[in-house]
Design a binder for these strands. Structure first.
Length: 269
DNA sequence: CGGCTTTGACCAGCGC
DNA sequence: GCGCTGGTCAAAGCCG
Protein backbone atom coordinates (compact mmCIF):
# COMPACT_ATOMS: atom_id res chain seq x y z
CA UNK A 1 0.00 0.00 0.00
CA UNK A 2 1.93 2.97 1.07
CA UNK A 3 5.18 3.00 2.77
CA UNK A 4 7.26 5.84 4.01
CA UNK A 5 10.64 5.87 5.47
CA UNK A 6 13.44 8.13 6.32
CA UNK A 7 16.88 7.57 7.54
CA UNK A 8 19.39 9.24 9.75
CA UNK A 9 16.79 11.06 11.67
CA UNK A 10 18.19 12.38 14.86
CA UNK A 11 15.93 11.57 17.71
CA UNK A 12 16.13 12.82 21.24
CA UNK A 13 18.30 11.26 23.83
CA UNK A 14 21.01 10.67 21.29
CA UNK A 15 19.01 8.09 19.49
CA UNK A 16 19.36 7.83 15.80
CA UNK A 17 16.14 6.84 14.22
CA UNK A 18 17.36 4.98 11.24
CA UNK A 19 14.07 4.23 9.70
CA UNK A 20 10.42 4.81 10.03
CA UNK A 21 7.93 3.00 8.00
CA UNK A 22 4.20 2.99 8.02
CA UNK A 23 2.27 0.48 6.12
CA UNK A 24 -1.46 0.27 5.80
CA UNK A 25 -1.08 -3.25 4.52
CA UNK A 26 -0.24 -4.45 7.95
CA UNK A 27 -2.92 -6.00 10.11
CA UNK A 28 -3.02 -2.76 11.97
CA UNK A 29 -1.48 0.38 10.57
CA UNK A 30 1.46 1.10 12.68
CA UNK A 31 4.58 3.05 12.84
CA UNK A 32 7.67 1.08 13.32
CA UNK A 33 10.71 2.84 14.56
CA UNK A 34 14.04 1.25 14.33
CA UNK A 35 16.27 3.07 16.67
CA UNK A 36 19.95 2.73 16.90
CA UNK A 37 21.32 3.82 20.19
CA UNK A 38 25.03 3.91 19.79
CA UNK A 39 25.05 0.53 18.22
CA UNK A 40 22.33 -0.89 20.35
CA UNK A 41 19.29 -1.48 18.29
CA UNK A 42 15.90 -0.79 19.68
CA UNK A 43 12.81 -1.54 17.80
CA UNK A 44 9.65 0.09 18.81
CA UNK A 45 6.42 -0.75 17.14
CA UNK A 46 3.98 2.00 17.74
CA UNK A 47 0.64 0.42 17.36
CA UNK A 48 -2.35 2.63 17.42
CA UNK A 49 -5.93 2.84 16.39
CA UNK A 50 -7.89 -0.28 17.04
CA UNK A 51 -5.28 -2.23 18.93
CA UNK A 52 -6.48 -2.75 22.42
CA UNK A 53 -4.80 -5.84 23.70
CA UNK A 54 -1.22 -4.94 24.27
CA UNK A 55 0.14 -1.66 25.37
CA UNK A 56 2.45 -0.30 22.72
CA UNK A 57 5.86 0.88 23.81
CA UNK A 58 5.05 4.52 23.56
CA UNK A 59 6.86 5.40 26.69
CA UNK A 60 10.24 5.51 25.11
CA UNK A 61 9.24 8.30 22.83
CA UNK A 62 6.49 9.80 24.83
CA UNK A 63 3.85 8.87 22.38
CA UNK A 64 0.21 8.14 22.71
CA UNK A 65 -1.92 5.94 20.52
CA UNK A 66 -3.90 8.86 19.26
CA UNK A 67 -1.49 10.30 16.85
CA UNK A 68 1.15 9.18 14.50
CA UNK A 69 3.50 10.78 12.06
CA UNK A 70 5.55 9.52 9.23
CA UNK A 71 8.16 11.14 7.10
CA UNK A 72 9.65 10.49 3.81
CA UNK A 73 12.69 12.04 2.39
CA UNK A 74 13.49 13.12 -1.10
CA UNK A 75 17.11 12.46 -0.43
CA UNK A 76 19.50 9.61 -0.02
CA UNK A 77 19.50 7.79 -3.28
CA UNK A 78 22.41 5.78 -2.01
CA UNK A 79 20.14 3.29 -0.37
CA UNK A 80 19.82 0.49 -2.84
CA UNK A 81 17.80 -2.35 -4.10
CA UNK A 82 16.18 -3.84 -1.04
CA UNK A 83 14.57 -0.55 -0.20
CA UNK A 84 13.61 0.48 -3.62
CA UNK A 85 10.22 -1.05 -3.41
CA UNK A 86 9.47 0.82 -0.25
CA UNK A 87 10.49 4.02 -1.88
CA UNK A 88 8.61 3.35 -5.00
CA UNK A 89 5.61 5.31 -4.05
CA UNK A 90 7.75 8.19 -3.07
CA UNK A 91 9.39 8.13 -6.41
CA UNK A 92 6.01 8.28 -7.99
CA UNK A 93 5.47 11.61 -6.39
CA UNK A 94 3.60 14.58 -7.69
CA UNK A 95 6.19 15.57 -10.22
CA UNK A 96 5.81 12.18 -11.77
CA UNK A 97 2.22 12.62 -12.56
CA UNK A 98 0.85 11.27 -15.76
CA UNK A 99 1.85 14.34 -17.67
CA UNK A 100 5.03 14.82 -15.78
CA UNK A 101 6.21 11.40 -16.69
CA UNK A 102 5.61 11.98 -20.32
CA UNK A 103 7.44 15.25 -20.34
CA UNK A 104 10.23 14.82 -17.89
CA UNK A 105 10.76 11.19 -17.17
CA UNK A 106 12.23 10.09 -20.40
CA UNK A 107 14.07 6.86 -20.73
CA UNK A 108 16.90 6.60 -18.34
CA UNK A 109 16.11 9.76 -16.49
CA UNK A 110 15.92 9.49 -12.78
CA UNK A 111 12.65 10.26 -11.21
CA UNK A 112 12.54 13.11 -8.82
CA UNK A 113 11.41 12.16 -5.36
CA UNK A 114 8.96 14.64 -4.04
CA UNK A 115 8.99 15.41 -0.37
CA UNK A 116 6.26 13.51 1.30
CA UNK A 117 4.99 13.67 4.78
CA UNK A 118 2.18 11.68 6.29
CA UNK A 119 0.43 11.68 9.58
CA UNK A 120 -2.71 10.44 11.20
CA UNK A 121 -5.13 12.62 13.03
CA UNK A 122 -8.19 11.81 15.00
CA UNK A 123 -10.86 13.87 13.36
CA UNK A 124 -14.44 13.70 12.29
CA UNK A 125 -13.78 15.74 9.19
CA UNK A 126 -11.63 14.43 6.40
CA UNK A 127 -10.22 17.66 5.13
CA UNK A 128 -8.43 19.51 7.87
CA UNK A 129 -8.27 23.25 7.52
CA UNK A 130 -4.62 24.14 7.31
CA UNK A 131 -4.57 27.68 6.03
CA UNK A 132 -3.98 26.80 2.41
CA UNK A 133 -6.55 26.44 -0.31
CA UNK A 134 -6.95 23.03 -1.86
CA UNK A 135 -8.80 21.83 -4.89
CA UNK A 136 -9.94 18.28 -5.06
CA UNK A 137 -8.93 16.65 -8.31
CA UNK A 138 -9.69 13.04 -7.72
CA UNK A 139 -11.04 10.35 -5.52
CA UNK A 140 -10.32 6.68 -5.61
CA UNK A 141 -11.54 3.68 -3.82
CA UNK A 142 -8.78 2.17 -1.77
CA UNK A 143 -8.12 -1.50 -1.83
CA UNK A 144 -8.95 -3.23 1.43
CA UNK A 145 -10.71 -0.17 2.70
CA UNK A 146 -14.27 0.98 2.77
CA UNK A 147 -13.18 4.56 2.61
CA UNK A 148 -12.07 6.37 -0.52
CA UNK A 149 -8.90 8.36 -0.85
CA UNK A 150 -9.22 11.94 -1.94
CA UNK A 151 -6.60 13.85 -3.87
CA UNK A 152 -6.10 17.56 -3.39
CA UNK A 153 -3.86 20.10 -5.06
CA UNK A 154 -2.89 23.51 -3.75
CA UNK A 155 -4.84 26.10 -5.69
CA UNK A 156 -2.04 28.64 -5.62
CA UNK A 157 -0.67 29.17 -9.06
CA UNK A 158 2.48 27.20 -9.81
CA UNK A 159 2.36 25.53 -6.43
CA UNK A 160 2.77 21.80 -6.88
CA UNK A 161 1.95 20.76 -3.37
CA UNK A 162 -0.57 17.97 -3.15
CA UNK A 163 -2.15 16.07 -0.40
CA UNK A 164 -4.03 12.85 -0.09
CA UNK A 165 -6.65 12.30 2.52
CA UNK A 166 -8.11 9.01 3.51
CA UNK A 167 -9.78 7.57 6.51
CA UNK A 168 -8.21 4.68 8.29
CA UNK A 169 -9.98 1.47 7.59
CA UNK A 170 -8.95 0.08 10.93
CA UNK A 171 -10.04 3.10 12.86
CA UNK A 172 -12.48 5.32 10.95
CA UNK A 173 -11.98 8.06 13.47
CA UNK A 174 -8.44 8.47 12.21
CA UNK A 175 -7.73 10.53 9.13
CA UNK A 176 -4.55 9.82 7.23
CA UNK A 177 -3.20 12.88 5.48
CA UNK A 178 -0.21 12.75 3.19
CA UNK A 179 1.44 15.90 1.91
CA UNK A 180 3.66 16.03 -1.11
CA UNK A 181 5.87 18.92 -1.91
CA UNK A 182 6.63 22.18 -0.26
CA UNK A 183 4.75 25.44 -0.31
CA UNK A 184 6.93 28.25 -1.55
CA UNK A 185 4.35 30.96 -1.37
CA UNK A 186 2.61 32.92 1.35
CA UNK A 187 -0.61 31.73 2.81
CA UNK A 188 -3.64 32.87 0.90
CA UNK A 189 -5.17 35.88 2.56
CA UNK A 190 -8.73 34.79 2.01
CA UNK A 191 -8.66 31.51 3.79
CA UNK A 192 -9.93 30.75 7.20
CA UNK A 193 -7.69 30.41 10.13
CA UNK A 194 -6.17 26.97 10.27
CA UNK A 195 -7.95 24.59 12.54
CA UNK A 196 -6.26 21.42 11.58
CA UNK A 197 -5.58 18.81 14.12
CA UNK A 198 -8.62 18.92 16.09
CA UNK A 199 -6.14 19.83 18.62
CA UNK A 200 -3.32 19.11 20.82
CA UNK A 201 -2.82 18.91 24.46
CA UNK A 202 -0.07 21.44 24.49
CA UNK A 203 -1.76 24.21 22.64
CA UNK A 204 -1.62 27.24 24.83
CA UNK A 205 -2.78 29.47 22.04
CA UNK A 206 -2.98 29.35 18.29
CA UNK A 207 -0.10 30.80 16.39
CA UNK A 208 -0.58 34.23 14.91
CA UNK A 209 -1.43 34.22 11.22
CA UNK A 210 1.84 35.89 10.49
CA UNK A 211 3.55 32.71 11.56
CA UNK A 212 1.61 30.31 9.44
CA UNK A 213 3.74 30.62 6.41
CA UNK A 214 6.81 30.14 8.48
CA UNK A 215 5.38 26.93 9.75
CA UNK A 216 4.45 25.61 6.41
CA UNK A 217 7.77 26.36 4.92
CA UNK A 218 9.80 24.97 7.73
CA UNK A 219 8.44 21.53 7.92
CA UNK A 220 10.90 18.72 8.28
CA UNK A 221 10.51 17.07 4.96
CA UNK A 222 14.11 16.63 4.13
CA UNK A 223 15.53 14.64 6.93
CA UNK A 224 19.07 14.89 5.76
CA UNK A 225 19.48 18.60 5.93
CA UNK A 226 16.51 19.41 8.09
CA UNK A 227 14.95 21.68 5.61
CA UNK A 228 11.30 22.25 5.63
CA UNK A 229 8.61 20.25 4.03
CA UNK A 230 5.16 21.38 3.23
CA UNK A 231 1.83 20.85 4.74
CA UNK A 232 -0.57 21.54 7.46
CA UNK A 233 1.08 19.18 9.79
CA UNK A 234 3.85 21.63 10.23
CA UNK A 235 1.55 23.45 12.49
CA UNK A 236 1.54 20.45 14.69
CA UNK A 237 5.27 20.38 14.68
CA UNK A 238 5.59 24.05 15.09
CA UNK A 239 3.56 24.22 18.19
CA UNK A 240 4.96 21.14 19.72
CA UNK A 241 8.50 21.38 18.54
CA UNK A 242 9.27 24.97 19.21
CA UNK A 243 9.50 26.19 15.68
CA UNK A 244 8.55 29.53 17.07
CA UNK A 245 11.66 29.57 19.09
CA UNK A 246 14.58 30.71 17.08
CA UNK A 247 16.60 27.56 17.31
CA UNK A 248 18.84 25.82 14.83
CA UNK A 249 17.04 23.40 12.62
CA UNK A 250 18.95 20.42 13.85
CA UNK A 251 18.03 21.22 17.38
CA UNK A 252 14.50 21.65 16.28
CA UNK A 253 14.23 18.19 14.90
CA UNK A 254 15.68 16.62 17.91
CA UNK A 255 12.62 17.73 19.73
CA UNK A 256 10.24 16.33 17.26
CA UNK A 257 9.65 12.74 17.87
CA UNK A 258 8.51 12.82 21.45
CA UNK A 259 6.26 15.77 20.94
CA UNK A 260 4.85 14.42 17.77
CA UNK A 261 2.88 11.89 19.64
CA UNK A 262 1.03 14.25 21.80
CA UNK A 263 -2.52 13.36 22.39
CA UNK A 264 -5.13 15.17 20.42
CA UNK A 265 -7.81 16.86 22.34
CA UNK A 266 -10.85 18.87 21.39
CA UNK A 267 -9.82 22.20 20.15
CA UNK A 268 -11.46 25.24 21.59
CA UNK A 269 -11.84 27.91 19.00
C1' DC B 1 -20.06 33.22 -13.63
C1' DG B 2 -16.15 31.60 -11.28
C1' DG B 3 -14.60 28.25 -8.26
C1' DC B 4 -15.19 23.93 -6.68
C1' DT B 5 -16.60 18.89 -6.43
C1' DT B 6 -17.85 14.66 -8.59
C1' DT B 7 -16.85 10.85 -11.30
C1' DG B 8 -15.79 7.93 -15.21
C1' DA B 9 -11.97 7.30 -18.16
C1' DC B 10 -7.34 6.94 -18.96
C1' DC B 11 -2.47 5.87 -18.13
C1' DA B 12 1.71 3.92 -15.93
C1' DG B 13 3.82 0.71 -12.99
C1' DC B 14 3.98 -3.61 -10.96
C1' DG B 15 3.27 -8.53 -10.00
C1' DC B 16 2.09 -12.86 -11.70
C1' DG C 1 1.00 -10.18 -21.90
C1' DC C 2 -2.58 -9.40 -18.78
C1' DG C 3 -4.93 -7.77 -14.89
C1' DC C 4 -4.82 -4.95 -10.87
C1' DT C 5 -4.03 -0.73 -8.55
C1' DG C 6 -2.79 4.04 -7.72
C1' DG C 7 -2.76 8.51 -9.54
C1' DT C 8 -4.45 12.01 -12.70
C1' DC C 9 -7.36 14.20 -16.18
C1' DA C 10 -11.24 16.56 -17.65
C1' DA C 11 -16.11 17.09 -18.60
C1' DA C 12 -20.23 17.85 -16.25
C1' DG C 13 -22.67 19.54 -12.60
C1' DC C 14 -23.27 22.16 -8.32
C1' DC C 15 -23.23 26.25 -5.53
C1' DG C 16 -22.75 30.85 -3.69
Amino acid sequence: MWDHEFRNFHCPKDLTCSRVSLSAADPCPYMRLNFTDYGRSLEKALAFSHSSSSQPPFSSVGATPNSCISYSSTQDDSDKSNKESQLKELEDGSENSKTGNKLANKKGEKKHKETRFAFMTKSEVDLLEDGYRWRKYGQKAVKNSHYPRSYYRCTTEKCKVKKRVERSFQDPSMVITTYEGQHKHPLPTTVKRPMLFPSFTLRPSPPPPSKWHELFTRMPGDMNNYQAAAGADSLMFAENFSIFRQVPDNELLQDMVPSAFLKHEPYEQ
